[in-house]
Every structure is written in structure tokens, then in C-alpha cells.
Design a protein around this nucleic acid. Structure first.
Lengths: 343, 343
DNA sequence: TTGAAAGCGCTAACAG
DNA sequence: CTGTTAGCGCTTTCAA
């Protein structure tokens, strides 16, 4: 299929008997141009249905006005909120975004970076895949001075700006809340241990326990790869443990929901027998029964802040000095944990 | 922030004392080149960390290898599934995607098209906003011979390829199922009436009623703009109607869930007093209580098919003749409608 | 097997 | 106020 012909400045110039640069100036609304000439050109452009060729401009000014975005998966509500924030912000500031998903694969992530760099994006916004344990590809970006920042799934190994939430504090609030409800044997269901958020949220979990005089040796950590399959089997295993927990803090909502399903199937009362709390505040969490106590994470705002900061760096509005943005989370107590009913 | 310098073919050429065209040929693995020269160039490119400049190539060959995608919103699970399918497919076939969201606004949609066209995308995949009632912007695309296809939210006014699901049949199955459960006063909760899917799903609704001897005049259609606010108020209004329905078919799951929330708040038993069915099969629908009967719509596959077809057209693998792909939906009966318990 | 040259559509000195 | 010129990084005839 051949695309229809696109009108160029050259054609407008020829039709009007002026030079291409004059056309370029007119279309850029340059002040150093006779109003009449400008008007004639603008009108002609309109009547010929002229469309700017951003590609040519990008090549010429070596700026594409495109931001590359890499997320582990597009269908997660949290990441799509991020992207939504990024897209709206970029759009407002005259940028387009090019999106890739790593599908949680390290190789894909590397490949994504490569194509986005080839496409001459002006900067990158990256959220790491679960598999990413080696950061050479990021280091290379850094060494090659390609502007990029990380959000949510970040690593401290690379000195670039990062946008995260106060993971540890959020987890702390959730676990503290469970403790307040009278639970004392609280389990932490974690994703892969080397994930930044797994670690951070564990810190908060342990800190809350400590405040209630529970030592790390008394803590119970269950690891899953976050697939529904493993989430379920780990939950089953937990139920058979001799000293069964009376509460669970799950690293992310989808995991909490998988756990909840198993508990319900087994006829275990939530929160009476086992109280439950998650992290993220997915839409499902509010409407599920019992509604899921969770920590809300402002996905859209994270996207906005990340995009704005990167663009500020690109436009030299702020320095290139790496900054860390840590957004606040808020505890949303719901029925999955409320043992003490407020009247 | 200034980007680091990128190595060009010219620099490789100079370093090796060959011409740029030779470098270009070597990097393209052209056969008409001495193996040794090729090897030397490829190695030098690697050692200099050469990165292809897709922008320059695009300008030269007038093909960007980029597809533009416009969806009403990024955070809806259905659309993000579409995008995921599009992205994976495009990636496999060597294309990148540029994404815009119209935020359900007609003006945004027009603006999105404009920037994507300026960016020289090779083709567009569009799902219309709720507000879009005028199709001049699409007609213009069509007249200018810019390849594009529509998916899910389509219009029949423009003769381009479309990817949809069998909306009418899906709705028919859902309503037929409600009828089978013994319900006879079935309401249809619809989105804006001029929306393609509102109409199609209504057709299926009416057809099922007809089969059970219920005429259109006996049908009950409630219209909402699909905001949670209006969804709730329309539901309340319905509850006060003299001849209250004993079942509801909601045009999309999120609407069904809003309705369910109101019914639960009012203490109305689902499905005993009012049975409920939705359309889409959102992740929430499976885990909500009662689980929501719905019609599943293969979002990821739709994205794959749409992208593959557009690329086939671009690559002249198929003709430009508009085709309509209608994907099958399947009924997923769940507890929100099962009055007749199967043992 | 390789190089020279032209040009994709646009911008930006520089000159007038 | 406007035109000329050179060139962004690459591809592709054409010629050698």
C-alpha cells in the first residue's frame, strides 16, 4: 500500500514563487517576515493541506521531541496509569511518546532500549523488568549520555533521577494497621527478593513488627514469583504451616487477591481468622468482597512527575543532577483487615 | 541537557578510509561487498558503539516503521490489552508504536491524528472517542491516502478495515442466558446511544427478547454516560420504577459493577431479585462477589489482528480492499445470574 | 567491489 | 524582509 503524496515546503514555495526558507519562516511564524508574504504562505499551506514533517525537522535539529517509555507490562493497571500520566504530560509539552513493554524480560528490555535509542528519542523513562539483575545496559545509556530516568521499578546502582513511592513507609503503615487490629503473627508475601520494591516493603514490614516488639526472627516471609499459580500454591503451603499467621501483608494487590481467593475457597474468615492487606490500590480492591485494605500508590502522578522532570532536564530547566522523587502513599483501611469495627 | 554524541557512518568511514556508502552497505549486510571490508566495518562499528539512526533512514526511504495508535483511554483494561497486542505484533515485525489517548474527547482525537501524521507514522490504528460523531477527520485521512484501520469503537461511515467483536451476538447470548434463568423483565443499560457498540449490543438484546416473545415496546432501556456517578443515579432511578426489572444486561463490565454496588448497598439479592450480566470480562468481574456473568472480548487478539492486518496492507501482503474482522465472543456464566444452580 | 553524488524535507547561518 | 547555501545521517543510482 502506498501512502498518498504529502505536500512539502518546496511545493508551496514553487507555487508562490518564494524560497523554501521563506516558507519555513512563515510557517514558524517568524517575526522577520512581511505580514503579507506570511499570510499568503500560511493560506496556501492550508489550502494545499500541508502537513509538517516532524521527521525531517528532527533530523535537522537533532531533536525528535519523542520520549521513549519502557514498562514491564502494558495491561497492569498501575503501569497503564503511569503511562497515562506520562502521555498527558508529554503531550502538553509538545512531545510524543513511544512505548515498549519488556514483558518482564531482561532481553526484551535491552532490545527495547536499543530500538528506542535508534529511533532517536530525546529521553527515556524506564521501569525495570522483574528479571533485570544486571544493569550494564543502563550503565551504557548513562555512559553514552542519553538522558533517562527510572520510575517505580528502579535500581540504586545507576546515578539517574528516580521516581518512586515511599514503599517502606507504605508497608509500615499497612503492617502497623494490622498490628493495631490485634494481629501478631503477620506474614509478608513478597515477590522476587532482588526486586527493589520487595526489599523496600520488607523493611517497612520489619520496622512495624519491631515497634510492637516482634523480632525479625519471628517474622514470616513467603516468596512467590507473582504468577497466580505460585501465589496460590504458596498460600496453600502457608495454611499448612504449624504456626499459621493471623494476618498477611501482600506486596501487591493482585497477589493479595490471589491469596484472598484461596482463603475464601478454604472457608477461612477474613479478617477474623486471617486479616489481609495489599499494596497499590487496584480498582478491583475496592469492589472485591471483603474489600481489600491496601496502600494507594499514585500511578498517574508518578507518570506526570517523571515526565515533567525528564523534560525539565532536557529543556535545562533543572540541572542534570540526579534527583529522587518519593511520593507519598496512603493507607486505605477496608474490610479485609478491620477487626475493630468503628461505630 | 545535551545528549552525548552519536557515532555516524561518516565517522566510521573516515576511520577506515572507505566511503560512507560502503559503510552503509556493510551494515546492511549487502552481498556485493568484499567479505573482509564488511568484517572490518562491522567490527569497527561495534567497537565505536555505533547506533543506527532510524530517523535519517526514515527520511531517506520515506517510511518510519512506526505505527500510530489512538485509544480513548490508556487505563482501561480492555484498551491496554489491545495496545499490548498491537505492541507485541508491531515489535515482532520491526515496527515501533507511538501512542496517544484521546481521553474520550473529539478535539483531542483530531489533534492526536495530526501529530501522528506529522510524525510520519506509516499507518494508524484508531479506536474512536465517545464524543466522536463527526467523521471528517477520518475522511481526510482516507482522502489523503494515509493507511489506517479502526478497532472496537468503529464507524461504518468510512470504508477502511475494521476489527470488532460480534457485539450483537455477544449481547444476544448474555440476554438469552438471563431469559433461560427465568427472568422476563430484562433491562438494558446502555452507554451513549450513538456509540456503535451501544447500538449493536442493543440489537442483540432485542433479538433475544423477541425470541422469547417479548416485543421491543416491552423492552427497558436505560441510558448513561458511563460515568460512575450517572451509572449509580440511573440505577437508583430504575429501582424506583413501578415495574422493576428482574434482570439487567449492562453494556460494559464497569457499568455492571457500578450497578452491582448500588444493588448490594440497597440489600437487593443478586441474582435472586435482580440478575446481572455485563460485557468485556474485566479482571475484576471474576473476583467480585457475586462473580459477574459477562461476555468475554478478546482484547489482546484484537490488537494482534488489527496490527497484523495493517502491516499486511502496508507490506502489500493483502490488498487495500477494506476488510471486516469480527471476532467471537464467549458467554461466561457466573454467579450474578445463575438462578438455576447446576449440581 | 567500491566511490561519488544527489537528495529525503527541513533549518539556520549568512548575505544582500 | 528574503534568498542562497550548506547540511542533519542515511540510501541509492550511476559510474568506475
Amino acid at each position: 500500500m502506498k501512502k498518498g503524496h504529502q505536500v512539502t515546503m518546496k511545493e508551496i514555495a514553487k507555487k508562490l514563487g518564494v524560497s523554501v526558507s521563506t516558507v519555513s519562516r512563515a510557517l514558524k511564524d517568524s517575526p522577520e517576515l512581511h505580514p503579507d508574504t506570511k499570510k499568503r504562505i500560511v493560506e496556501m499551506a492550508k489550502s494545499m493541506n500541508y502537513q509538517y514533517n516532524l521527521l525531517a525537522q528532527s533530523l535537522r535539529i537533532s531533536k525528535s521531541k519523542v520520549l521513549g517509555v519502557i514498562v514491564p507490562e502494558l495491561t497492569s493497571h498501575f503501569f497503564s496509569s503511569n503511562i497515562s500520566g506520562i502521555q498527558d504530560t508529554a503531550y502538553k509539552r509538545g512531545y510524543n511518546i513511544m512505548i515498549c513493554q519488556s514483558n518482564e524480560s531482561y532481553e526484551q528490555e535491552k532490545a527495547n532500549i536499543k530500538t528506542l535509542v535508534s529511533s532517536q528519542v530525546d529521553g527515556l523513562l524506564i521501569s525495570l523488568s522483574r528479571e533485570t539483575k544486571n544493569y550494564d545496559h543502563l550503565r551504557e545509556l548513562y555512559d553514552r549520555e542519553i538522558p533517562f530516568i527510572m520510575f517505580d521499578r528502579v535500581t540504586e546502582e545507576i546515578p539517574v533521577s528516580k521516581v518512586t513511592v515511599d514503599d517502606a513507609h507504605g508497608a509500615y503503615m499497612a503492617v502497623h494497621h494490622l498490628l493495631e487490629q490485634g494481629c501478631r503473627k503477620i506474614a509478608y508475601f513478597s515477590g522476587p527478593e532482588d526486586l527493589y520494591i520487595s526489599k523496600k516493603r520488607k523493611e517497612g514490614y520489619l520496622q512495624a513488627l519491631k515497634e510492637f516488639g516482634i523480632s525479625e526472627s519471628e517474622s514470616k516471609v513467603y516468596i512467590t514469583d507473582l504468577t497466580t499459580e505460585m501465589n496460590r500454591s504458596v498460600t496453600m503451603k502457608m495454611l499448612e504451616d504449624k504456626d499459621r499467621p493471623d494476618a498477611i501483608f501482600a506486596m501487591i494487590d493482585p497477589l493479595a487477591i490471589d491469596i484472598m481467593m484461596v482463603l475464601k475457597e478454604k472457608g477461612i474468615k477474613i479478617p477474623e481468622e486471617i486479616a489481609l492487606a495489599g499494596f497499590t490500590n487496584n480498582p478491583t480492591s475496592a469492589v472485591i468482597e471483603p474489600s481489600l485494605t491496601t496502600v494507594s500508590q499514585p500511578g498517574y502522578e508518578m507518570g506526570q512527575i517523571a515526565a515533567n522532570h525528564l523534560l525539565d532536564q532536557l529543556d535545562d530547566i533543572v540541572s542534570d543532577e540526579p534527583q529522587s522523587f518519593v511520593l507519598h502513599t496512603t493507607l486505605i483501611p477496608r474490610n479485609s483487615s478491620k477487626k475493630i469495627k468503628s461505630k
